[in-house]
Design a protein around this nucleic acid. Structure first.
Length: 486
RNA sequence: GGUCGGAUGGCCGAGUGGCUAGGCAGAGGUCUGCAAAACCUUUUACAGCGGUUCGAAUCCGCUUCCGACCUCCA
């Protein structure tokens, strides 16, 4: 590899050479889901993007500790620092315990992540499991003079913090503009400043999810959860903090302020943000009513979809766009990805059937260089995929006898393709029980070839057409017949 | 209203101051008993108007349109 990994850092608004604090160790924290409802496809995109990043860092030899939290408490409806959190609200709606809601949607989330073939994080901490750490952190922020308690709720003092620190470091906005433009909301008379946010929130006696604290019974604010958990498992300062772009202006901005106030250190060296999935140019979200649920895709049960799309098709679709670009979702775009993905995988399956030649007329080394260059350029998976389609053409034409590869080149090619397709992009073959089928298919192909040799085309066509009806397509070429599931 | 980011061919999407990704769709061809697959060739582009430059879709300015954030959101 002759290029270095470059990572776009939201903090500096430019690509930087990636230099871990303690190589080969890398600490990466990604804000996980709030498990009060099903994850929609937009949520999934973020986790698929960070899965790509995690996989590539590991592929480069880094020992990554990937922490992704489960937010299972404290996430309020709206901006009011009072009332029920989302779990309590949903629990009432579904007539369940709040922790039943948490369990239900956590399991659902993990199942969806499994279907998308994302690797599990090394640690998946939950907010309710780290109440002590959060209380401790709030105490330290109060001790540093940057938070105050009013009537059982603790607020972070943004204006005081801003005297010594840059509160808007992540989004580069002017504090005065923020102050001038932040909406005045009712019910928050306890706050000193309108930008102040809650670290700990007082709970009413009937509130189901509440814990004792130095400030009475309550529950943690959303932002403090991530600060406390990242500190516990990755330390005061770690390498990468990631999440959706929508979290940057508020959640991550507040996280930085909290961690600075508590630890007197920047929490993360590189802040990485993934862009939004859009539908007709508008961000996919539950409130907009344009949220697709993963299972709606996998079953095709949605008015905008003409049919079902597999998890791998959807993953491939996501990886065909760069993680920092918005990606527009449509039936037509998915259809294109589905065909492209199948073409790629068909060629991958041909890899170990390629004939070895005495010499090569293709430079595999150069292809490899371009693949790594693409990924090193801030994880540019669409360019990597474009390079892989050049490999597809190569593989097909070697199979057709129009190009040739010697033993060494073939080995290199196999290694490269397997590494990029399976390890880095995290794609997987969708053919189930292929092993069982393979023998049967060999038999059928042989019978068909025998019929063809006898010019018994009625029989050969019957085999081909019947298999077609069963969803298996035969592909004839000079070197023989292969098959694929349609 | 404030801040920021976009506008690429029928669709989705990369990229770059000159060599003009890729996938899908369309057209033609090769191969083939037929079909499919595969391969080859090929048509549609860089929102508009100015400016900088030998040269801009790429840099700068303005205009129009769109989006995100500023309020929970991946």
């Amino acid at each position: 590899m002759d290029s270095q990994l470059q990572v776009y850092n939201t903090l500096t608004r430019q690509k930087e050479v990636f230099k871990p604090i303690n190589p080969p160790l890398v600490g990466m924290y990604v804000c996980g889901p709030t498990v009060y409802s099903d994850v929609h496809l937009g949520n999934c995109r973020t986790f698929v993007s960070f899965d790509l990043i995690y996989r590539y860092l590991q592929h480069l030899g880094y020992k990554v500790r990937y922490v992704r939290n489960i937010t299972d408490a404290g996430h309020l409806e709206g901006d009011r620092d009072e009332g029920d959190d989302k779990f309590t609200k949903k629990a009432k709606l579904e007539q369940l315990e709040p922790m039943e809601i948490v369990q239900k949607y956590t399991l659902g989330f993990r199942e969806v992540m499994r279907l998308f073939n994302t690797l599990s994080p090394n640690i998946e901490p939950s907010a309710t499991g780290h109440i002590t750490e959060q209380i401790e952190m709030v105490k330290q922020i109060i001790d540093s003079g940057l938070a105050y308690e009013v009537n059982g709720t603790v607020y972070f003092d943004v204006e005081k913090y801003s005297k010594d620190q840059n509160y808007t470091i992540l989004t580069n906005r002017e504090l005065d503009d923020l102050l001038a433009n932040t909406r005045e909301l009712g019910g928050q008379d306890d706050k000193k400043g309108r930008l102040d946010f809650a670290l700990w929130i007082k709970a009413k006696p009937e509130h189901l999810m509440r814990w004792p604290s130095p400030w009475g019974w309550g529950f943690p604010g959303w932002h403090i959860e991530c600060s406390a958990m990242s500190k516990k498992y990755l330390g005061d300062t770690f390498d990468i903090h990631g999440g959706g772009l929508d979290l940057a202006a508020t959640h991550h901005t507040n996280e930085i302020a909290q961690s600075q106030a508590c630890n007197h250190a920047e929490p993360a060296k590189y802040w990485m943000h993934t862009n939004m999935l859009t539908v007709n140019g508008t961000r996919m979200s539950k409130s907009a009513g344009n949220g697709f649920l993963p299972f709606e895709l996998f079953t095709g049960n949605h008015p905008l979809l003409s049919r079902a799309y597999s998890p791998m098709t959807v993953r491939f679709f996501m990886l065909q766009a760069h993680y920092r670009s918005t990606l527009d979702f449509s039936n037509e775009a998915l259809e294109a990805s589905d065909k492209g993905f199948k073409r790629l995988m068909s060629a991958v399956h041909l890899l170990d059937k390629l004939p070895v030649a005495a010499s090569s007329d293709y430079d595999v080394q150069d292809l490899s260089r371009r693949c790594y260059a693409a990924m090193n350029d801030d994880f540019n998976s669409p360019v990597l995929i474009a390079e892989l389609f050049e490999a597809v053409r190569l593989i097909n034409s070697v199979y057709d006898g129009k190009s040739k590869l010697d033993k060494q080149s073939l080995d290199q090619l196999q290694q490269l393709i397997n590494a990029m397709v399976f390890d880095v992009l995290g794609l997987q073959s969708e053919e189930k029980s292929e092993g069982d089928l393979a023998g049967i298919m060999d038999l059928l192909i042989r019978l068909r070839n025998e019929a063809k040799a006898k010019q018994d085309y009625a029989t050969s066509d019957q085999i081909r057409m019947s298999l077609q009806d069963l969803g298996i397509q035969l592909k004839d070429s000079k070197t023989g017949t292969t098959w694929d599931k349609i």
